[in-house]
Every structure is written in C-alpha cells, then in structure tokens.
Design a protein around this nucleic acid. Structure first.
Length: 1154
RNA sequence: AGAUCCGUAGCUCAGCCUGGUUAGAGCACUACACUGAUAAUGUAGGGGUCACCAGUUCAAAUCUGGUCGGGUCUACCA
C-alpha cells in the first residue's frame, strides 16, 4: 500500500487532468501553473507580488518539488560524494502527530539539508515503528476485548492482522505532516519493523548476542503491569510520566514475636508481655505474602512500651531508634501509663531496651495473616524470621522491612539468601488467588476501572486494626510507577524472562559514550552517563502477541535450546524436524517455508534437538525497543543484503541522530547498547536531544489540559517556514520551548516580511532597469564603500553561520541570519541605497548596487535554506529564473556558500557601525529640537581623539550626511579646546594593577578637572597619590570621552559624541520647503496610481515661499518627481490641496502627454 | 529522596564560561517622525532590588555555598 501510493505520485502528473492533481495535493491550480510558467522556464522579469503569503508559497514549492523529484535529486546529485549518515528514529503511526514532532523533525531536516549543501550525500530512509503494546492496546480497546480473549474470542491470526492494519492508521496524517512541514525523508522505501526482512535481521542480531553468551533466561522480580498483562522493561518504566504521586493506604503492621531462647532478651525487658515488630508498608496487599522481616545489622533498634492507638491495649513494640519521633511525641515519653484511657490523646511511651539489628537476626514471629493458601509449607522455605540486609534504611517507616519475596527485587534477593521461600498470592491479572478467605479473587488495585471498587488495602488494614495488629494506618502520598500505556499502577512480580547481559559490556559502553558528541553536553555526561553507570540487564521478554518473536526453541526439559538467526536456517530446521519427527510436524511449512515470522505461525513450528527431542519456541516476544535499537542494521536487511554498507562504514555508524530528550533511555540507549554489543562501536557520533514543547504558560501539553497545538493548523495558517524558523530560533533546541503563536507571527512579520520586502524592492527596480546579472561581476574594489561593507558583513555572516551549523547550534545560526537581514541589509543597506536604484542611468554604480543586493539575497537564500526550505527555494528560484546563474533548479541542490575571506574587512564593518551610531545620535538630536529630517541642517561636529577615528568617520561621512540630511561634518580635535571631557577609570586594566586601591583611585580620577585630563592626554601619564602611595596613571588606564560642547546640542554613545548645529538659515528653510513639495507631489503621484516611470506636469498655485523654493530648486524638484514641467500659476482653482509647514496651497498634477 | 537544568523588563530571550561601574535586544504599550520597500522603518519614553540569603573580591547578573520556586530525569524504597 505504502509503495503503491507513493510511486503513484509522479504518473498522476502525467496522466490525469489538473483537477485530479489539484484535489490530490489540495493546492490551488493557479499555483501549479504559475510555477510551471515561471519557475521551470527562465524569464526576463523577476516575479512581483502584492503581499507575502507563506502558505501559498509553500504549496507552490511543494508542487515544484514533487514535479522535479527534488528530494530524490538532492540525494542522487551527490552520488559518489562522502556520505553523511543519518538515522530516522521511527515514529509509531498509531497516534496523531503533534507540534513537538515538528521541532525534532525540523532539527533532523535542517542538519540533513545543511550537510547536503555542504556536499555530502545524505540518505534518509524513513521508518515506522509498528510493534508493541500501544498498538495492541488500541486494538483491544477497539474490539472491546481483553488480553484473555485473544486466542479465544478472536484468533491470534485475526488479532495480529488487526494490529497490522491499526499500526499505520495515521500514516497518512504523518505523511501529510512530513510533506507539509518540508521534512525530506524517504517515505517511498521506509523500513517497517513488522516486515519479515526486518525481523530476520533482528533474529540475526539476537543470534549473534546468543553466541556471545549475552542472551540468557532467568527468573526475576520485574515490573509487571496487570492491566496490560505484560512485564515492563526498565526503559519502559523510565518513560516520562510513569512515576506519579499517588495516595495509598499505608499500614504499620504488628508482627508478634515468637518466644524462644533467642528472643528471651526482649521478653525479659518487656516483663514477659507480648512483643511486636513494627513494619511499614504502602502495599498492604503484599502482607498475606509476607515471609520475613528485614532489619539493618548496624541500625539501632529499641523496644518501646506503649498502647495500641486503635485498640488501646498495652503493647511492646520494636522499631528503629531514629524513627521513634515518627510515632511518638517527645512529651509522651515516660508519660502517665496508669491514667491512659481510650480518650487520652497523648500516647505515653517508654524505652525498655536498645539493641543492634544483628541481635534480632533469626528471631521468629507469628504469621500476620494466615490462610489456607499461605501456610508455611506452601512457601517452600523456612519463613517468618528476622533477616539482616544492607538495603534497610531509617529514612522512612520503622526500620524493619516487611519482606514478601515475590513482590520486590530486594525482598526476593534477601529471601533467597535466607531461604524463606516465596509465595505469589496474586495472579497475573492482579487479583488475589483462591484460599485467602474474604480477600480471595479481589483485585489488589483498581485495574479494571470498576465504579464500585473497594480498596482491598483498606479492608486489610481494617482487619489488622481490629485484631490489634496495626499500629498506624494512614493515607500516604508517594511516587509510584505506573504502566506507561494503561496508566495503572505497576506491581513487582516474579516472572521468567530472557535478558540481554548489557552489564557485561557496561565499561565499554561508558567508554564509547565519551566519544559521542552530545548536544547538549550535559545530557550525555549526566543523564545518559549516570544511566549507563547504573545499568541493569535488559529484560527483553514481553508476553504479548504483536511483536518480534524470540527465535529460541527449547526442549521440554530445557536441556537443549537453539537460537535461529535467519529464515533460511529456520526453513532448514523445519524440514529436518519433519524428517526426524515425522508425521504432521511442520507440514504447513514444508513446501514454501515460513511466510510470516509472527505469532501464531512461529509457535506452530517444532524443531528437533540433537538427540531427537522436539523443541518448542519460547513463547515470549521481544521488547519493541530492540526493534528500533537494531534499525541501523535491520533497515538495510543486514547481513543478508548491504553487507558492505554496514561493515565499510557508509551506513554505520550514524554521523547524526536527533530525537526528544525523552528518548535518552529509550532509543539512544538501545542504539548504543546494540552498537557496542554487536560491533564494538558507537551507533552514532553526534546526537542532539531536543527539549519538550510546553504551552505558552510553561505547562506540558497534554490532551487532558486541552492545550495541545495542532501542527496542521499552525502550518496552514502561518506556514511551515515561519513555524520552523520560530521553533529553531526562539530557544536552543534542548531547552524546553514555550510555544506561543504570537512568536510565529512575529517571525513571519519581522523576518520573512522584511526579507520579502527586500526582494520585492529589488524585483521592482531590477525589472525597470532590466537587470539580469548579464554584466561582468564588478570586482569588489571597484564598488562603493557601502557595497564593500554589506558584502563584508555578508561574508562574516556566512562564516559565523557555517561555524554554528557545524557545531549543531542552529539557534545561533538562525539568529545571526535574522539580525543580518533586518539590521544590516534591510534597514541600513537598502535604506541608504534606495536612491541608487531609482535614480540615475543604468551604469556602473547602479549595476554595482544590483549585483550587490542580488548577491546578498541569493546568499541569504542559501544560508537559510536548511531551516526554512520553502521560502529560500522560492527566493532562490525567483532570482535564478531571471539570471540563470546556476543550473540547479532548487536551492537545496546547490552548495552552501563558502565565506570569501578576502571580502571581509573588519575595519570597514567597524566604521559602518560608527556611521550607524552617529546617524542614530543625530536623529535623536533632531527629535529633541523637533526638526524634521526633511529639513536640511548645516553642520555636525564630531570630536575625534585620534587620527584613526577621524579616518574611519571620514570614509563614511557621505553616508551619514545623506542619512541625517546635514550638509557638512566637522571634526573637532582637542586643539580647539572647547570640548568638555569626562574621564572614567578603565576598571579592567587598572583593577588588575591596583587591586585594593582601585576604589580610592576611582574616586581620585572622578575628581579630575578639565586641566588634569588635558595634562594626562598631553603627557600620556599622570602622577597622583593614592593612599599616600604614588601612582603613575597611563593613558590606556582611563577612558576619556567628550561629555559636552558648550552651546551645542550634544548626544553621545560610548566614545562617540555628536553635536548638531540647529540654526535654520533662510537658505536651508527654502531647501526644506522644496523637499516638502517633492514629498507631497510624490504622494499625489502614488495616489493617482502613476507608474514609477511616468513623466508628469505640475502646476502650483503661486505664493511667496513657493516662489522662493521653486526658483532656487527647480531642477532638483523636477528631477525628483520626474516632471517635464513645473509652473507657478496665479489663482489655481482645480487641484489638490496640500499643506507645507502650516501653509496650504493648491497643486495640480497631470501625466505628460508624449 | 537524589541528580540535573533553569529563574534577567508585562512576554520571548541575549549577557554568565573568561567578574570591570548606565544590564541589552525584540515584542507589547505611549508619543513623535520618516517613507515611490509601507501590514515596513526611525527616534524618544515608561518598564529591572538580574528569585532570595550569605561568602569570595577593590569590583558580582557573572565565581562559591545555601534557601525558595519551576522543569526534566532517576529511584529496590519497603
């Protein structure tokens, strides 16, 4: 189905009507034709648009990609190039994708696109995780059955068929997201974990582990989910959200000490009254299975005389000394025993004896809850004794641990050591077995979501209370593991299971982990490192139906076993068994061999041992995490195919993988474990783990809270590019991201809007002038200063962006691009250069401007392509369609820019910064005195402190003058003497030298007079006394700035100070008016809807000030407004009324006729 | 309970590694301006005890220790 669908895309274009294509892609027809018309063919005009619409652009680009098979081409173009190996972590398609999938996939995509543009070949095989519990539970729910019904109400064949269908239920949605968000991954030939070939590789892996002695069977106490009916692996238990705070009924039970020689010392101290051991439990349901009490050997215990708070009977209890405070109040010590009644609130107590835990070892006690099912004989050991072990602490409870070997790993271990036997009084559904009186058949937790569930733990506690066997019963809130799928509490349960002995390679895993580049670093060292240090063997077994079967066959007595590593091997064994065992054995599989490696077929296969005994398959399935952990090999059907790809390093290990941080103990772990165990190698060289996506208030997104963001809506409304750009640039991928739609809007407006405007500006004028980059590339040294500058900045940008991408820091890279586009390119270069595009002839300077802006835009398109693949391709194609500079039809096929170091001129970038600062200061001064920029001013003074500063400023002088509309800049050196200066210590330099005297020096320097400063500047040094010690102050140990120029408007920023002459001469005013006139007429031109190039005729109502301006600036005005004629008319009646400096006049604008 | 990351303007984030004296940017808000790129842009303004406490230092948002709050993870925890 998968293949059919995807392979069909291309033929569709060829054979069907456009309307079919349209409905298939839900793309407006127009878009398809536009692109066919405008993008595939070269054209002479740059495309112009009314407004930016990212979603439309994206649809257009998607259609183009589909038509050109752009993704496939991006891989095939690099055939023979060095491979960059990427692994796609397989998603499970049985749930809807969410916005958090968009961030990790953006991350993966951008790295792959970047590396492709760096010249690597990046194959990206998609994949689907198809086995496992989520699928099974979904099917059970859908069919309204439980695990018990499988094989009864529904056959395993049918059930597995349902699973096979259900698992790709949302595949279409996933594919749609993949396409719409612009994630390039091979969806046509994905690896699918349920396919035979995939499973065959898994079997090969298992057999290899088996041969290395790393696969073994053992009984162990494991987390078990009665609700799901399966054991859980440690990584499943380590899924986020499994540990939840729950309130359980906890009980401190009283175990009655048996009187014998060993315990006599207790009874002596207690005056031969009853003595009880106090033991705490949060799971009273384990009490019937109690077989021991464990104490710490070196812990101090006490015997306390008191009353039972429920029955008010006098009792003597044993507990850890440190924990007395938990049960007794200090003021009750040695209290009034005689006067104690049921109403007494304060419990009197008295310590009768104190002893170490080891003195209690071997003491016996009476069984707490005896029934038919838990007689000592049934335990198979010698139960009801006090045991000693080191796991006991005095942080909680009583310091005496109730020990039920079946239901705790520690309990099992210590129980085995002492031989107290084992009782498993709860069945696999989570209910008590027969023979436990009133508790028989009751669920120990509410596994079935019964409305009227009565907590058996409460009933047990009540019973204990009544029988004088409970000392304290209370609700206790603690965190308890829950099944990650069913949300029901897990219990620990003795199970037979197959394990991978990961602990055997722990050291090697730790060692190799140190060679992995983790982003962020802390995850690898801390979270993953700690996890490796504390690793336990990997429990592979799952008692379910839909999954990879364990390929191990055993004789009934377990004396012989066989691990199968390939289909061929299995078929051979099948025939052999039939020959040896005869009859109907394997008769269904003799002819064609086995066709499906799943249950129930594999279970029907009987193999034969060396000595002719039948062997049956171990019934377990394996952990789905093994499926995904083995994907590097299984996706290529290694070693049955593609042997070299794995062994010669072209497909293993991965150069890069990325997933959510929640995969640290999941996929990242199993990949690593298998890489180390199978090939003694890392499975990936770099791993990026991204953080969670939270809602805008910082809460986790969950269906329950209803704050889940639908990625389709977001992408549909704002575009994939804006979404991707936002997700990447807002916060580092590994920080958790507070997702806010407003942020995407901002990105769209500020970054894409600005860049789009810049392109639009370019297209507008380039079309007028017919610029198609046909002229020779103008050497950089023949371009004006500002072109040199923007190109220098651009190359610095290329360099920095590349560095950041190489470091897997896309956030920083994106922010740099953003800054460049907004600050440098749009708001400085284009703004200052506007006139160059619309004025003058099409010659050197103008061509230089076009070439420069073109280069910037084209380079930006390439730089941003990894993060926002659509807009960049659109921009790139629009440009290239006219110039045809490169042959590739997509930005994703070209190479990433390489920084042209020779273009970088840091001095130039520095002085442009000076120009920007100076302009900003001057504009702020204009603002202060309320003089419009349109009004020319005569002069600016800038104090300079050295010749280099002056030189720098002089080179950008024209830019400043134009920008702020000032006629001249005058540089002041201190020889003029009327600058008021300010001096400040250079703390960094001086602090190191002076240390403790810094403060005093600071005060002294602050008191410098203008003369002192002048002296220091002249001499270069200055002597002063600090704390009666001489100090020779160097010029470089202070910062001297000009503070004020008396009589001038002054502003400063850092070292730069500007002073503005705000005197308005009639001359200047007249020029200002001329500019006002130009402005008004331009507005009228625009309102009238004239073309940029239309010539006009203007008639102005005559008046005094108009006469002044027009007579003086007639030519200037006419050039600006493209007027053939500008005349003053008396008594003009018709025309537009305008206002210039509070004077209104009439004006008439008409098109020239020619 | 431990580990780890985080806490800077109403919001999103820089700055912290390498301590240096007016703590920055964008958004939002207010006012004014500019504009043949115009749903853009500029200037100005309000808005911060850099979570808190202590220490080191001449000097702390920055280094150290602790406290509080939040996230994530771990845990045999009876």
């Amino acid at each position: 189905m998968t293949r059919l669908l995807n392979n069909s895309i291309i033929p569709l274009f060829n054979y069907f009507e456009p309307s079919v294509i349209q409905s298939f892609f839900s793309i407006p027809l127009q878009a398809i034709f536009i692109y066919i018309g405008d993008l595939t063919m070269s054209t002479t005009k740059y495309r112009e648009f009314n407004q930016l619409n990212l979603p439309t652009i994206e649809q257009e680009i998607l259609a183009k990609w589909a038509e050109n098979q752009a993704f496939e081409k991006s891989v095939s173009l690099r055939e023979g190039a060095e491979p960059f190996v990427f692994y796609e972590g397989p998603p499970s398609a049985n749930g809807m994708p969410g916005i958090h999938h968009v961030i990790s996939r953006t991350l993966k995509d951008l790295v792959c696109r970047y590396k492709t543009m760096q010249g690597f070949q990046v194959k990206r095989k998609g994949g689907w995780d198809t086995h496992g519990l989520p699928v099974e539970l979904g099917v059970e729910k859908e069919l309204g059955i439980t695990k018990e019904d499988i094989g009864k109400k529904i056959s395993i064949v049918e059930y597995n068929q349902k699973c096979r269908e259900a698992v790709l239920r949302y595949k279409d949605k996933w594919d749609e997201l993949t396409t719409k968000m612009g994630y390039w991954v091979d969806l046509k030939n994905p690896y699918v974990t349920f396919e035979n070939e995939y499973i065959e590789t898994l079997w090969w892996c298992l057999k290899r582990l088996y041969e290395k002695g790393l696969l073994y069977k053992s009984v162990s106490i494991q987390p078990y989910s009665p609700a799901a009916g399966t054991g859980l692996s440690s990584h499943e238990l380590n899924q986020p959200g499994t540990y939840k705070d729950v309130k359980d009924t906890s009980a401190v039970a009283m175990f009655k000490t048996a009187k014998n020689g060993d315990s006599q010392f207790l009874f002596d101290a207690a005056g031969n009254d009853e003595v009880f051991f106090l033991a705490w439990t949060t799971t009273p349901w384990t009490l019937p299975s109690n077989l021991g009490l464990t104490v710490g050997g070196n812990i101090d215990y006490v015997l306390v005389k008191t009353f039972n708070p429920y029955t008010h009977l006098p009792v003597n209890v044993v507990l850890a000394k440190n924990l007395i405070g938990k049960y007794f109040k200090p003021e009750g010590e040695n209290g009034d025993f005689a006067g104690y009644t049921a109403e007494t609130k304060l419990l009197p107590w008295q310590i009768l004896a104190e002893f170490k835990g080891k003195q209690l070892e071997g003491l016996r006690y009476e069984q707490l809850l005896p029934y038919e099912a838990n007689t000592p004989e049934k335990s198979g050991g010698d139960p009801f004794r006090v045991l000693v072990d080191s796991f006991v602490t005095t942080e909680d409870g009583t310091g005496i641990v109730h020990t039920a070997p079946a239901f705790g790993a520690d309990d099992y271990k210590v129980g085995k050591k002492y031989g107290i036997g084992i009782l498993t009084l709860v069945d696999r559904e989570g209910k008590f077995v027969d023979g436990l009186g009133e508790f028989s058949h009751r669920y120990v937790k509410n596994y079935k979501d019964e409305q009227n569930y009565v907590d058996v733990n409460v009933d047990i506690s009540v019973k204990l209370k009544k029988e004088n066997r409970a000392f304290k019963v209370e609700k206790y809130e603690h965190s308890y593991p829950h099944c990650w799928r069913t949300d029901k509490p897990v219990l620990y349960y003795p199970l037979d299971a197959w394990f991978i002995k990961t602990t055997a390679v722990k050291d090697r895993m730790v060692e190799l982990n140190k060679t992995i580049n983790w982003k962020p670093k802390a995850t690898g060292e801390g979270r993953f490192g700690n996890w490796l240090e504390n690793m336990v063997d990997w429990n592979l077994s799952r008692s379910r139906y839909w999954g990879t079967p364990l390929p191990v066959w055993r004789t009934a007595d377990g004396s012989e076993e066989k691990c199968i590593g390939s289909i061929e091997e299995l078929n051979t064994e099948i025939r052999k068994a039939n020959e040896v065992l005869g009859g109907d054995v394997n008769k269904h599989y003799l002819h064609d061999g086995i066709l499906d490696l799943h249950k129930p077929y594999v279970d029907e296969v009987v193999l034969v041992s060396k000595d002719g005994k039948p062997m049956h398959r171990e019934p377990d399935l394996i952990d789905v995490w093994f499926d995904s952990g083995a994907m590097p090999y299984a996706q290529w059907h290694y070693p049955f195919e593609n042997k070299d790809a794995i062994e010669k390093g072209t497909a293993f290990p991965a150069d890069f993988i990325a997933e959510g941080v929640d995969q640290t103990r999941g996929w990242f772990y199993t990949l690593h474990a298998l890489g180390v165990m199978l090939f003694d190698n890392v499975a990936y060289k770099t791993v990026v783990s991204n953080g969670l996506v939270l809602d805008k208030n910082g809460n986790k997104m969950s269906k329950r809270l209803g704050n889940v963001v639908n990625p389709f809506e977001t992408i549909g409304t704002f575009g994939a590019d804006a979404t991707r750009w936002y997700l990447i640039t807002n916060a580092s991928p590994w920080d958790s991201l507070k997702f806010d739609i407003e942020g995407i809007k901002e990105v769209q407006r500020k970054f894409f809007g600005t860049l789009y405007n810049t392109y639009q500006f370019f297209a507008l004028y380039a079309n007028v002038d017919g610029f198609a980059f046909k002229e020779a590339y103008i050497p950089i040294d023949q371009r004006p200063e500002i072109d040199k500058w923007i190109l220098s900045s651009l190359q610095s940008l290329v360099k920095n962006v590349t560095e950041n991408f190489n470091q897997y820091e896309p956030t920083l890279a994106g922010r740099l691009i953003e800054d460049f586009v907004d600050e440098q390119l749009s708001n400085w270069y284009v703004r200052l250069c506007r006139r160059r595009f619309w004025k003058g002839e099409y010659e050197h300077d103008k061509i230089s401007a076009y070439q420069t802006l073109y280069e910037c835009l084209e380079t930006i398109a390439r730089l941003m392509a990894p993060v926002s693949p659509f807009f960049s391709d659109w921009l790139f194609s629009n440009l290239n369609a006219v110039t045809g500079k490169v042959d590739e039809t997509s930005v994703h096929h070209v190479l990433y820019p390489k920084a042209k170091e020779e273009f970088i001129d840091l001095g130039l970038e520095e002085r442009m910064q000076l120009a920007q600062d100076a302009s900003s200061l001057i504009l702020s001064l204009r603002k202060k005195v309320n003089i419009k920029v349109r009004q020319p001013l005569q002069k600016v003074l800038i104090p300079v402190f050295n010749s280099s500063m002056k030189g720098q400023l002089q080179k950008v002088e024209d830019l400043i003058k134009t920008e702020v509309n000032v006629k001249e800049i005058q540089y002041l050196t201190d020889t003029e003497g009327f600058i008021k200066k300010k001096i400040k210590p250079n703390f960094q330099a001086l602090g190191k030298k002076l240390g403790g005297k810094m403060k005093a020096a600071g005060v002294a320097i602050g008191q410098f007079t203008q003369e002192d400063i002048a002296l220091l500047e002249k001499e270069g040094t200055y002597s002063l006394l600090i704390d009666n010690e001489p100090l020779i102050l160097q010029l470089n140990e202070v910062e001297i700035t000009s503070e004020d120029i008396p009589g001038w408007m002054v502003a400063n920023k850092g070292i730069l100070t500007v002073a503005l002459d705000v005197t308005l001469t009639p001359e200047l005013e007249s020029e200002g008016n001329a500019r006002e006139l130009v402005n008004r007429i331009q507005k009228i031109r625009k309102d009238n809807g004239y073309e940029l190039t239309d010539r006009i005729m203007v008639r102005l109502a005559d008046s005094e000030f108009v006469k002044q301006s027009v007579s003086q600036f007639d030519e200037y005005i006419r050039t600006e407004i493209l007027a053939d004629k500008l005349e003053l008319v008396d008594g003009l009646i018709d025309g537009t009324e305008i206002e210039v400096n509070d004077i209104s006049l009439k004006i008439q604008v008409t098109k020239s006729i020619n």
